[in-house]
């Protein structure tokens, strides 16, 4: 691996945000309390939003904060609140599963990094339009109108389904 890295502003931003994201993710797996885990992952999501900004994807970054941090994490915390979490941390460990899982994940990571290193990416090319948010809006309502509508239908169906699933069933008596 070559280390002739230019310390551009982008690199510095990427590096610090990447460290934040990885630390958040690793911490999330290390905490024992579920709420801590959720909050730690929220931290990772925010770091990712920052990375999106670095990647000139301001709208995606905005949605990321809104959706992941604002909606999904909160949803999960609601889920945590609605269920009991007694006896966390002292549950019996599953050594076989954990070892195999670790080996498998590391192997996959190795393969992925190998593939990334091996791949031949083109040099930086044409820049994106400046006002990406406007362009995304245009695309969403012209070229991507049908997928957009389909996704909204999907969301509606999913939420109705979620309500139906989580609703307490009526007592037959």
């Amino acid at each position: 691996m070559s280390f002739n890295i230019e310390f551009t502003g982008e690199f510095v931003a990427f590096f610090s945000l990447a460290v934040c994201a990885i630390v958040g993710a690793v911490m999330a797996l290390n905490f024992t309390k579920v709420v801590h885990m959720a909050l730690s992952l929220a931290f990772t999501f925010i770091a990712l939003a920052g990375l999106f900004v670095v990647l000139e994807a301001e709208f995606v970054a905005f949605v990321q904060v809104l959706l992941y941090v604002g909606a999904i994490t909160i949803l999960m915390i609601f889920g945590i609140m609605m269920t009991k979490h007694q006896g966390e941390g002292q549950e019996p460990s599953r050594p076989l599963l954990e070892t195999l899982g670790a080996i498998g994940c590391l192997a996959l990571l190795g393969i992925l990094i190998f593939a990334i290193r091996d791949a031949n990416f083109p040099a930086d090319s044409a820049p994106l339009p400046l006002d990406t948010t406007r362009e995304i809006g245009k695309l969403l309502f012209t070229q991507m109108a049908v997928p957009f509508e389909l996704v909204s239908v999907l969301l509606t169906v999913a939420f109705i389904g979620a309500v139906a699933l989580a609703k307490r069933e009526e007592d037959p008596q």
């Binding site: 195999l100 899982g101 498998g104 994940c105 192997a107 996959l108 393969i111 190998f114 593939a115």
Partner: peptide
């Protein structure tokens, strides 16, 4: 986990 191991094996075989 089984699926993951299978995936790793396939990827290793291809690589």
């Amino acid at each position: 986990l089984t699926a993951l191991i299978g995936l790793v094996i396939i990827a290793l075989a291809i690589a």
